[in-house]
Amino acid sequence: MGHAKHFVRLFGVLAVVVITFLAVRAQAVPKDYGTLGRFRASAITDAKKREPRHIGSEACSDCHDKINKSWAAGKHHTPQCENCHGPGMLHVKVMSEDSVDAYPDQIKKNPKALRVTSGIQECEWCHFKTFERPSVLKSISNVKEHITKTGGTYTAKSKCTDCHDPHTTVTKK
């Protein structure tokens, strides 16, 4: 078989390639790949790990008990605290002086780590007239018109919260 010597060597080269491939593969594939299906099983644990950023209105009441009670007793409790104030996880951490090193940008921009409410935009989301909106909500289409009609004086600084308590919907004044 002298005339096939080159094929023997060729197969040798191929064998080296295949063995190298298998060796690298053995190292590279995560150990738990395929135990639950064609994926890395520990990816599920990783996905569960993340900390929720929205903490829920109940958690807010730990510190803000009074306002929480009046909110819960009022007519405006379908939106929760975090609907307007933004997620509370970081806020709790900042206020309780937990480590917030993982979120440098958010803290630098916003030391209390809550959404800065405008007293008008938060109301607009639900209570500005939009044609497509089911007519279950009280809504207005123009702030100026609304204030003038109800006997107030409109200025550029007028806010919904001047007259309406957002937590209870009770009208002030």
Partner: peptide, 19 residues
């Protein structure tokens, strides 16, 4: 490149052709 096989016999050439 020749994998060290630098002689090509007629028999080898015929085999190569078939492969």
């Amino acid at each position: 490149l020749a994998l060290g096989v630098t002689e090509v016999s007629d028999a080898a050439r015929r085999l190569d052709r078939r492969v």
